[in-house]
Amino acid sequence: MKTQLIGLKADDFRHPLDLEATTNLKQLPGLDIAMRGILGSVAEDFFYLNNIASSILISEKQLPHLHQLLLNASSILDIEPPQLYLKQNPVPNAYTLAIRGRKPFMVIHTSLLEILTDEEVEAVIAHELGHLKCEHGVYLTLANLIVLAAGLLPTWGSILAQSMQSQLLQWLRCAEFSCDRAALLVAQDPKIVMSVLMKLTGGSPSLASKLNLDAFMEQVKDYQEMSNTDIGEMLREMQTAQLTHPLPILRAKAIENWSSSAEYYDLLEKPKVSYNSQSQTKGGWRNW
């Protein structure tokens, strides 16, 4: 039995780095206005139409077991479930789009399902719901547009785009920590979330079930020891500067740490409702 976190707010689980990076982005003039205005409307409609034309919409009639995982995770996080799509793609991945809050949707690649258990898929869905709960949609889309613009603008414009891109990438890496926490709140078992990160690092359909989570977590110690020197710190910054996500071993360690924190236990101990993951329960609506 899991617990439904009634009245859960984003700031209840938002990672401090996410809060700091989001605050910094909001200080850049015009970003929210541009993305929530005409530009946001066009981008949202474009991505929505492109997605619905080239992916499978999950529902009670189409792959209902995946639809139920979406309902389960949404109910626990106390959030209205978005549309969920399945897309044929050999790169294991999942992503969410919600610019103006009108047509939020989530996409999961077929290759990701091939390496994860149902519990792990539910954790991935919960991670993506975390983006919606924390209202990350505007900046997620903007990051993709800036990356594209950097390759299309003249030199001066490219420099400007790259500067903004650097800030957005920093924000993206911080935002992922919050969403991993959302995944843990749904899984309510840190090993499930840590296993997802391990499989995304080096999993395949034939190897995923054979991977050793304890051995994977031992890599964290080796990485931290290598990073303790001046040269190691410099190499680490060079390695991560252009990444959209923090390194998986560090994300797994962050989840391991948070799962034993008073903050995490306090959230699970707040007034709640016992939740059976097999029931047809839907979450309550929340405005983004």
Rank of each mutant, 00 (worst) to 15 (best):
K103M: 13
N89W: 05
M217G: 00
L84A: 00
I146K: 01
E20I: 06
K26S: 14
L207M: 13
R181F: 02
G284T: 07
L172V: 03
L168E: 00
A43Y: 05
I159C: 10
F105K: 05
D11E: 15
D230H: 14
L160Q: 08
Q224T: 12
L77E: 04
A215C: 08
I38W: 08
A21R: 10
L207E: 14
I76V: 13
C134K: 02
L31E: 00
K103C: 10
G37A: 07
T229H: 08
L116R: 09
W258E: 03
D222N: 11
L168V: 03
S195T: 12
N212Y: 08
G130R: 01
L172Y: 09
M238H: 03
A183H: 02
N50D: 11
L243K: 00
T110V: 09
E60R: 14
V273Q: 15
E263C: 06
D189P: 12
G130T: 03
G283F: 02
L57P: 08
W285P: 15
E120Q: 14
I52S: 09
E269L: 13
V186L: 01
M238G: 02
A43M: 12
L140C: 09
L70Q: 07
L211M: 13
L247T: 00
L66Q: 04
P82K: 00
L267N: 04
Q83A: 11
D118R: 07
A10N: 13
N24Q: 11
L153T: 05
P190I: 03
A94Y: 08
L25V: 03
H65C: 00
E225N: 10
D222L: 15
L200A: 07
S277M: 13
E225L: 11
L28I: 15
V107I: 08
M198Q: 11
L145Y: 04
Y48T: 02
N228R: 09
V121I: 15
E119L: 11
I52N: 04
H67G: 01
H15D: 13
F177T: 05
P64M: 14
V107E: 05
E237T: 10
W285F: 14
Y264Q: 03
I76M: 10
K87L: 13
